[in-house]
């Protein structure tokens, strides 16, 4: 019985919520597990703080909020500062390395950085940063299967942008997979 809590934090406009949607969709529709997505719902707007909470589980999910993320994905310094105190003592931190410099991390936390913004720019669209992070998360944590994540990307992005987004996913996925070989998912 495995349950993983994921927190994704960044700025409005970075695609934080969509990345949560993709992970949730991959887990609950394509992997056949259970997933609950909660969006921080407030006066968020482009450029201000934004976060999503995803719980992935083999059994139905009761309490819907994320309290101690086993996986923390941050795309802004503010999100890092805000959420790193919540991370599971043996959790995994995934961060955009040009935007976030991790410090004072608990000893058991494993941290993996990726220059996702630069990679997105190389692909031609800075907007696909979030999809690179989804690929990175999939490659490092395997919280969702690669095939399911890929299908969820296709389901979730506008028509005509699938190839670009799949390329972004692939870039993040390979970057992550090269950093780590098949770690066991964290079960808080």
């Amino acid at each position: 019985m495995s349950k993983t809590e994921i927190r994704i934090g960044g700025l409005g406009g970075q695609g934080v919520i969509l990345s949560g949607m993709i992970l949730g969709r991959a887990a609950s529709i394509h992997d056949g597990r259970h997933a609950t997505l909660i969006q921080a719902f407030g006066p968020e707007a482009r450029g201000s703080a934004c976060s999503a909470q995803v719980t992935v589980s083999d059994v139905p999910i009761g309490y819907p909020y994320v309290r101690q993320p086993g996986i923390l994905i941050v795309m802004s310094r503010d999100a890092y500062t805000q959420f790193v105190p919540q991370i599971h003592p043996e959790g995994i931190l995934l961060y955009e390395q040009d935007l976030v410099q991790p410090e004072n991390l608990p000893a058991g936390v494993r941290a993996f950085g990726i220059p996702a913004t630069r990679m997105a720019e190389q692909l031609g669209r800075r907007l696909v940063l979030n999809i690179i992070m989804v690929g990175f998360c999939t490659g490092v944590t395997q919280v969702v299967s690669e095939a399911s994540a890929r299908q969820a990307v296709i389901d979730s992005v506008p028509r005509g942008t699938q190839k670009l987004n799949l390329d972004a996913f692939q870039a993040g996925f390979e970057f992550g997979r090269n950093l780590v070989v098949a770690p066991s998912p964290v079960a808080p």
Binding site: M21, G24, S28, I29, H34, A35, T36, L37, I38, Q39, F41, I61, P64
Partner: peptide, 10 residues
């Protein structure tokens, strides 16, 4: 309620 309304699931 707000949580059920804004919670995304299968």
């Amino acid at each position: 309620d707000e949580v059920v309304g804004h919670m995304t699931e299968r």
